[in-house]
């Protein structure tokens, strides 16, 4: 169990692991995540389950901090010390009509199981993906099979719309009716998608700081309609229009100083 059976550098920044985890794979649903730890003195970090089959789950991550950098060092046949999941409440899937999946950067990966489930539920699925440049997209063939249309946005204009996913959404909103939006990516992106969407319900997948991932620490608490909710068990998905974004944007920076020190040590 927990053996890495495939490792793929998806592009300059994103790495894919396929990990042997038949029990988690059996229970995984769209929108859920796992928590992993790679060594005795390491941290517990949450990662969304980006795909799964009978025996394995797929994780996509970007080496940004100490733990994800160490994770990137692992090779095929290495084992992940601890793997706990599936965690969180699965995505709400039903036939809404037209569903727009919006993924920013690494957030593209967790869009996949939700897009797939939304498509299977009979929705028209349109994807809007954003990245800094054209090199950073991945899984486009996979997404083609589960969506009706894909709109790409790049910061530098190297592919598709020059601009952010919000620009892609604005254009799409002028073309026709959208019944639901699911947005996954950096917190700031999810905030601005929510602001752009107006009355269209936006489901966002939050990624606050977390320790246990099962409702025990309260570190992942977010304010939803003014009420304290735990992203790990009540979420990670919430309706964006109800999220107190400024509170969340502040809280995700809790360990900025500590992370900075960590990175200095890494260099």
């Amino acid at each position: 169990m927990n053996k890495i059976i495939e490792k793929k550098q998806l592009n300059a920044t994103n790495i894919l692991f396929r990990v042997e985890a038949p029990e988690i794979a059996k229970k995984a649903r769209a929108g859920q995540f796992i928590i992993l730890r790679i060594r005795e003195k390491g941290e517990r970090i949450p990662l969304t389950i980006a795909d799964w089959d009978k025996d394995s789950i797929t994780l996509v991550f970007q080496p940004v901090g100490k733990t994800t950098n160490e994770l990137a060092e692992l090779k095929v046949n290495d084992k992940i010390l601890d793997l706990m999941g599936p965690l969180g409440t699965p995505s709400h899937i039903e036939k809404f009509g037209t569903v727009v999946m919006i993924g920013g950067g690494l957030g593209i990966a967790p869009c996949y199981p939700i897009a797939k489930a939304m498509k299977q539920a009979g929705n028209k699925v349109i994807c809007i993906f954003g990245a800094r440049n054209k090199e950073l997209f991945f899984w486009q063939d996979k997404f083609k099979k589960v969506s009706d249309e894909i709109i790409l946005c790049t910061d530098d204009g190297s592919l598709g719309i020059k601009g952010f996913t919000t620009d892609g959404l604005k254009q799409l909103m002028q073309k026709g009716k959208i019944d639901r939006i699911v947005a996954i990516g950096p917190t700031i992106m999810m905030k601005f998608i929510t602001l752009t969407a107006g009355d269209i319900p936006v489901v966002v997948s939050l990624n606050p700081i977390m320790v246990d991932g099962m409702g025990m620490c309260g570190g992942c608490r977010v304010l939803i309609d003014g009420e304290v909710k735990f992203a790990c068990v009540d979420g990670p998905e919430f309706i964006g229009q109800k999220v107190d974004w400024d509170s969340l944007l502040n809280r995700v920076k809790t360990y900025e100083e500590e992370e900075h020190k960590c990175k200095i040590n890494l260099q």
């Binding site: 941290e43 100490k66 025990m216 620490c217 570190g219 304010l223 920076k253």
Partner: peptide
């Protein structure tokens, strides 16, 4: 209560005890 520096005792103690944040050799802050 959502300001940085406000902990539940559970989070604070889990970081300190389970994750051994009191020991600089451990990664959890």
């Amino acid at each position: 209560e959502d300001l940085i520096g406000v902990y539940s005792a559970n989070e604070f103690l889990t970081r300190v005890n389970l994750m051994k944040a009191y020991n600089a050799e451990y990664d959890t802050p």
